[in-house]
Amino acid sequence: MPYRWTSPPDAQVQELHLWPHNSLPQRGMAAFVLATFTLILIPALPLLGSVVLWGLLPFVMGAVWAMYFALRRNRRARQIIEVLTLDADDTHLTRTEANGRVQEWDCNRYWTQVTKYDDEGPVPHYVTLKGKGREVEIGAFLSEEERIALYDELLRALRR
């Protein structure tokens, strides 16, 4: 799961780290781009030594570069991390966006409410934290099953 409690359940301060799932690691992306380039060039083998290859090569290189650029941009856009810290008195949520912008929310742990909107949110099983007159989302980038499990874990963690 793309979230992990970094401290044991019975610790005084509990910390939960959440991040989007990245299905294509850096090495996998490099292999994919290389394989795509190789597969594109296979039909061009009969053109070796002809002028047509030089006319076709810029378009092939442009297509490979565009694919590489799109994959890199997607990877950078998914560099989001959310950190939820639960101590004896406070609940603190920090979200760091891919562009470096940081959003923070905190509340007294006693008054923190975890809510799951099954159908009313922007995604199914939308999980929020509510307190101090503000409601913030947590883990909106997770899958449906992961949000359901996160909701249950947050309820258990806040009851302690």
Rank of each mutant, 00 (worst) to 15 (best):
residue 110 Y to E: 08
residue 107 C to N: 10
residue 56 L to E: 08
residue 7 S to D: 10
residue 19 W to D: 07
residue 9 P to D: 10
residue 115 T to G: 00
residue 110 Y to N: 08
residue 83 V to R: 14
residue 154 L to A: 05
residue 110 Y to L: 10
residue 91 T to D: 01
residue 132 K to V: 07
residue 78 R to M: 12
residue 115 T to H: 10
residue 119 D to K: 08
residue 132 K to G: 10
residue 19 W to T: 13
residue 79 Q to L: 14
residue 35 A to E: 03
residue 86 L to S: 02
residue 121 G to P: 01
residue 67 M to G: 07
residue 19 W to E: 09
residue 30 A to H: 13
residue 43 P to E: 06
residue 1 M to W: 04
residue 97 E to D: 04
residue 35 A to S: 14
residue 60 V to E: 09
residue 11 A to H: 10
residue 2 P to G: 03
residue 96 T to S: 06
residue 55 G to H: 10
residue 92 H to C: 03
residue 76 R to G: 04
residue 151 Y to N: 04
residue 119 D to P: 04
residue 25 P to K: 09
residue 134 R to W: 03
residue 10 D to S: 12
residue 13 V to L: 06
residue 31 A to G: 14
residue 15 E to A: 06
residue 130 K to M: 06
residue 27 R to Q: 08
residue 79 Q to T: 13
residue 58 P to A: 12
residue 42 I to V: 15
residue 157 A to W: 01
residue 25 P to S: 11
residue 100 G to T: 05
residue 8 P to E: 04
residue 86 L to Y: 02
residue 67 M to F: 10
residue 98 A to Y: 06
residue 119 D to R: 14
residue 56 L to Q: 06
residue 42 I to T: 12
residue 34 L to G: 14
residue 117 Y to G: 00
residue 48 L to Y: 06
residue 28 G to P: 06
residue 95 R to G: 09
residue 64 V to R: 04
residue 129 L to F: 07
residue 43 P to K: 12
residue 74 N to Q: 10
residue 111 W to A: 13
residue 90 D to F: 13
residue 44 A to S: 12
residue 129 L to S: 01
residue 60 V to H: 09
residue 58 P to R: 11
residue 48 L to P: 04
residue 120 E to K: 00
residue 80 I to A: 06
residue 92 H to R: 15
residue 79 Q to K: 15
residue 116 K to I: 12
residue 38 T to Y: 09
residue 3 Y to D: 03
residue 70 A to D: 09
residue 113 Q to T: 11
residue 96 T to H: 05
residue 34 L to N: 07
residue 131 G to K: 07
residue 119 D to W: 07
residue 158 L to I: 10
